[in-house]
Design a protein around this nucleic acid. Sequence first.
DNA 1: ATTAGCACTCGGGTACGTAGAGTGCTAACA
DNA 2: TGTTAGCACTCTACGTACCCGAGTGCTAAT
Lengths: 344, 344
Amino acid sequence: MLTERQLLILKVTVDDYIQSAQPVGSNQLSKKAGISFSPATIRNEMADLESMGFLEKTHTSSGRIPSEKGYRYYVDHLLTPRPLPQQDIVQLRSVFEEKLTETEQVIKRSAMILSELTNYTSILLGPDVRRHIVKKLSIVPLTQDTAVAIIVTDSGHVENRIFSIPPGLNPSDIEKMANILNERLVGVSLNNLHLRLEQETLTILKQHVERYGELFHTFRKAVLLPHDDENIYYGGKLNILKQPDFHDLQKIRDLMDVMEEAKHIPMILPVGSQGLHIRIGSENALSAMEDCSVITVSYNIGEEQTGSIAIIGPKRMDYKRIVSILDLLSGDLSKELTRMFKGT
Amino acid sequence: MLTERQLLILKVTVDDYIQSAQPVGSNQLSKKAGISFSPATIRNEMADLESMGFLEKTHTSSGRIPSEKGYRYYVDHLLTPRPLPQQDIVQLRSVFEEKLTETEQVIKRSAMILSELTNYTSILLGPDVRRHIVKKLSIVPLTQDTAVAIIVTDSGHVENRIFSIPPGLNPSDIEKMANILNERLVGVSLNNLHLRLEQETLTILKQHVERYGELFHTFRKAVLLPHDDENIYYGGKLNILKQPDFHDLQKIRDLMDVMEEAKHIPMILPVGSQGLHIRIGSENALSAMEDCSVITVSYNIGEEQTGSIAIIGPKRMDYKRIVSILDLLSGDLSKELTRMFKGT
DNA sequence: ATTAGCACTCGGGTACGTAGAGTGCTAACA
DNA sequence: TGTTAGCACTCTACGTACCCGAGTGCTAAT
């Protein structure tokens, strides 16, 4: 439905606007490499592209900028991924040179490097902790009436919570409880912890531990409390301020507000979906992000557990480059993290 | 050296400017309550105050705004702390109603509430982890060649690090090592951990554990790696964007940049100093903060360990209110955290 | 089908005039 | 002598007018 020439003009227009952030006019365009027709012709084609909804004007006599539909068509049909410059690859892979031993560290560093490389904001979601398997559970008494419960998972993640001990309880009972819990809960995923706690351990505790009720209750409450916002990692939150597209302070505030709020994260990056996704402007669920584009990609550790990577930038984002970068990183990250925990 | 009337005019000028963010003129001032002299008189006095350096003009025929010297005099001599409204007290104390069990949680919540209450940015520094005393040390094997070391301190803080195990090492040796380390290191502060590690445990390890060298080396490296930026808590980082005083995007960027960078923190809030401090504009060490005022106060747990609270706002900050709020919070926080760990 | 030519539009910059708030100074006043 | 009314002056903010340049749409010629 679009002619070759229209496709060319659309592509060059989007490319130019992405690069310059200025509306592009027919004269300007005619001077570009690969364009062999006059400004007048370009004007006609651009008028057509506008009536079809791919381009827009900022005012009556301005040059054209891509509409959301224009960007959408561009990313769907006109994106010709170019191999990344060697330098970028080196920088991106430098994360893995650091010999980090912890998932958390690797992801945190990745977020930083990603934002440095792109000049946009990055959000990385760690693998879902709740699928991890309990490897060991300890209880360490702190004071007369408190103790800390420590759960180590197969991925090396350590969760710890303080809970209170009913006054006057026999210390040996706590030890007993720790032993029983260890015996019964190792091998269970954090997800299923609460089920197992109530189904299996409760009856056994009853038999061995005095006043198990209070102790169990406070322990259970501590262990189940979700610390869900702790595996979100940001890079370059302030890069938004670098973009010429954002000058309205109120909008910047709204946008940053939304990003910081952990509860909005599922709306920003579709957790659980595989592969690469691009959301342009109002395709985003949140109205504060209607001037942004978000590119997300998933990665995985082993086969099952997946995390997500998101890049948030203006609609006028360098899609070509970001797609290449995310492709590379998600692959590398999957490989590296899988390698780190292949032995589990 | 300043007459009563000059003091009054200075005070009212600063108060008014803090409240309105607009230069204040003689006519405007003459209508205020407590002012019983004419605009002309005020003009004379203001001219004097300006020549003495307490006030400034933004341009030849504008009203006056306080100079840094003016603010300084105001906070040193004219600050009449007023009791906080009951509602603020309630909101501030709501942190302690939540029955949080972990220091970290309490401090995190305090930072949030503080920023909500003040509309400025807050930074809270947790107590120095390095002074905490080791209560228990465990080593949990993860894979063939990795294990996680877990250190629980008397405050309930849990540090964990993954380290690698030299291939082919006897698993029972790791257990032996854990036992030895536990025996020797419980009761030592994290600060002194590295000393003790090398002085005492090394010789004993030599006697009991095969190939202690490699194992010890990798363990030592893991334990000593400082995670120092993890007890800084922010509240309302975006509140800067709310202040009418900040409109220059570049300055906002610089300011936020500086605040996020953990290494700048010691320059922002003077770690270790007791009591309440106010730094106005260029009194701050960092040039990015020359348009800000910072109010800091320390709090303590028990007798020794201290953390800090800082509020960062424009020079035109509501000093009276912030001082009252910080006074209250630092007291409450000290009491509450001391109570939480009085049993240690 | 393409393009040169032309009238038209709009944003941005500059110049100018005015209203309003504020100042400094002088002279009158208590 | 300290205070105040009066007045000329200054500067900002705002609105209007104007022009320049880049760009468009349309028409007519190629």
